[in-house]
Design a binder for these strands. Structure first.
Lengths: 139, 139
DNA sequence: TACTATAATAGAATTATTCCAAGATAGTAA
DNA sequence: TTACTATCTTGGAATAATTCTATTATAGTA
């Protein structure tokens, strides 16, 4: 019995073959795939899968707090199956996204004029940079 | 002679009435408008203005480093005519976006496994919270 | 004043995402 | 094991944001 089936069975989350394939693809995936990346991958095994299924599934996972929607790339959304609080860095050359596991919360005090207006609930840091392979290409 | 005309004339930036209207609308605007917000406003005075003109103009401004594209709202892009390095906070109730003028760069050291792969060039922090008026509504 | 490079326009095209109705099926209760 | 039903999957249409294109207009300049 697979880990994924064990994790989701009987929790109000219907496990269909397509969903299992999506869950397997996402599990431990640190590539921050887009909806299209997921769709393309699942289509290999389930050629009739639709974007609706991909979006439905990531939405269900997001609602369960098991997946994050990432906005660092202005072009499209990326998804991160690691829901623990962390941050991201994107290569401005090739668009690759990496994780930044570091808790900055102690360092992010806000100016009084902001806390006067907002009750702060969270934060997320986008870092930008150039990755190793992009630096090699241009040097 | 208007300030805007003085600022842009003779700098390879063609000043048309529509552009002047957009520039005036953006100047000092801290509401982080969307393309549609800009379009709707300019349409009042220039009813034939098109979205293409709005997008062309904000792109030209972005390329000149005079405007930032903001990704804090997963639904759509917002624009910020203040290009100085600062951060943003969005109300998760009503979507209102506020500015956070504080330089956190000294606090944002990155783990070695990240700097090994990326030459970091910038950062931007998205804060989330609930604004005053949304708190009043739900209490 | 006239010329030319650039902008504005309408509308089509593209892309990302959501919605919908019909058929299929996983999970459950008997 | 069977049968039921709530939920999922699907294709395609719909929506929304953004970009592109060809044509016309015009700001800036010479």
């Amino acid at each position: 019995m697979e880990r994924i089936v064990r994790k989701y069975r009987g929790k109000g989350f219907k496990l269909t073959p397509q969903r299992i394939a999506i869950l397997k693809f996402l599990e431990g995936n640190t590539n921050h795939p887009t909806a299209e990346d997921i769709y393309t991958e699942i289509k290999k095994k389930y050629p009739t899968v639709s974007f609706a299924t991909v979006y439905n599934t990531v939405q269900a996972l997001r609602d369960r707090g098991e997946l994050l929607e990432i906005t660092i790339d202005p072009e499209r959304k990326h998804f991160d199956p690691n829901p623990s609080a962390h941050h991201h860095i994107m290569c401005t050359g090739c668009g690759k996204i990496g994780d930044v596991f570091f808790d900055y919360s102690m360092s992010l005090g806000l100016p009084e004029e902001v806390t006067r207006e907002f009750a702060v609930t969270g934060n997320h840091i986008d870092f930008y940079g150039i990755c190793t392979s992009c630096r090699e290409k241009t040097s």
